[in-house]
Amino acid sequence: MTIHLKNITMQFKDTVAVNRLNLTIPEGELVSLLGPSGCGKSTTLFMIAGLLTPTEGEIYFSGENVTKKSPEKRNIGMVFQNYALYPHMSVLKNIMFPLKMQKVPSNEAKKRAIEASKLVEIDHLLDRKPSELSGGQQQRVAIARAIVREPDVLLLDEPLSNLDAKLRLSMREEIREIQQRLNITTLFVTHDQEEALSISDHVVLMNQGKIEQFATPTEIYSEPTSLFAAEFIGSPPMNIFKDVSEAQLKALCPNVPFSNEIASIGIRPEDLLIKDDGLKVTVKLVETVGKDTLITVEHDHFKRFKLFVHKDEYIEQNGEYYVQVNPENMLIFDKEGQCIHHGGIHHEIG
């Protein structure tokens, strides 16, 4: 199922939650809607689900206009943040419930529910009530209930936010495996960039009701098209150098020409290197991060920023060093916050 959103707008009184959004979700892909709180990602999902009707615009499922169709006529499966399980029903009856609403014969509904429970590995819990399950088990029940009706589209609204860190990791892997096994078009709403980047075919990065960038996880990390995307994606965040002088740019990267169009420069911590000359900095903090060492340095003009060094490289606290960057790893942004240089792509700047 291909999903196409055409000029979708959602306005609540004086607030425009989603603003003339255009997007095509390819068939069979898992696409994450990512962004800060209030960016419009859940509102977009609810419009696709039919739980909200757009103020303007149209929604198409494989060419069919479903803008005015009710949720039950869109053949979607949905997993909510709080799972929305019926506490008085057993796991089996919770999973069977959508089929009951479709008036599927009881024997067939039970058979399909058991198959769905096996897919998410909870077939040994079918007689229990939701209150007897862990958070991860409840999550699996919610997924089984969503897929039991064999939907064309699977919609997940912050499905892992109530789980602890370790369980979040395993559940996101399982969601990806299930999605690939079923080859079902899936939208996954999250504010967690690690989740989005790790399991998605494409990521929709949203900001203030609009799409900031739609790209693969690799592209959105390596080739952000805007200052917002560059700062939002990455942990630790990208270093942003503002009001860069010609001398400072030459110290950081001798091979990039200076231009008045340059408003700021972005460099990821892993792309800064300690050299014999360059931009002079003082080490303020040394942290061990897995196999690497993350150091926080200070510069008179740029204040504090971060870079990674190999764990075997000795870095002296309060020591003075020089840093540089390869021009292939530098991002340059204009005054509107648009990227005019990244990686091997260098638009004319001067």
Rank of each mutant, 00 (worst) to 15 (best):
E115H: 10
P54S: 14
E158P: 06
R145G: 01
H124Q: 14
N162C: 06
R145M: 05
P54F: 05
E158I: 11
R168D: 03
A142F: 03
L155G: 01
T55W: 02
R74Y: 09
I59V: 15
V148H: 02
M89T: 09
G136H: 06
S106G: 10
S106Y: 08
N82R: 14
E58M: 10
L156E: 04
E173V: 15
P105S: 12
S161G: 12
I59F: 04
V120S: 03
I122D: 00
A165D: 07
E58R: 14
L169P: 03
M78T: 06
S62A: 12
M101C: 15
P98G: 02
N82L: 12
A116G: 11
R149E: 01
A116M: 09
R74T: 10
A84F: 09
E174T: 15
E132C: 05
P130G: 05
G135S: 07
I114W: 09
S131P: 00
A116C: 13
K129A: 10
Q137Y: 07
A142M: 08
Y86P: 13
V66P: 01
F61Y: 12
D164Y: 07
N107T: 14
Y60F: 15
L167P: 03
A165P: 05
R112M: 13
N107H: 13
E173I: 15
E56N: 15
S134P: 02
H88L: 12
L154F: 08
S131I: 05
N65S: 11
E72F: 15
D157T: 07
E121F: 13
P130R: 01
Q81P: 02
A144R: 00
M96Q: 09
K103V: 07
E108N: 12
Y60P: 05
I122V: 10
I59G: 00
E150P: 04
E64G: 08
I76S: 02
S90P: 04
P54H: 10
P151G: 06
N107V: 13
I147T: 04
D127N: 14
M78E: 02
L125D: 07
P130F: 01
L169T: 15
R172D: 06
V148R: 00
S106V: 11
D152R: 11
E115L: 13
Q180H: 14
R112Y: 04
Q138Y: 07
P159V: 08
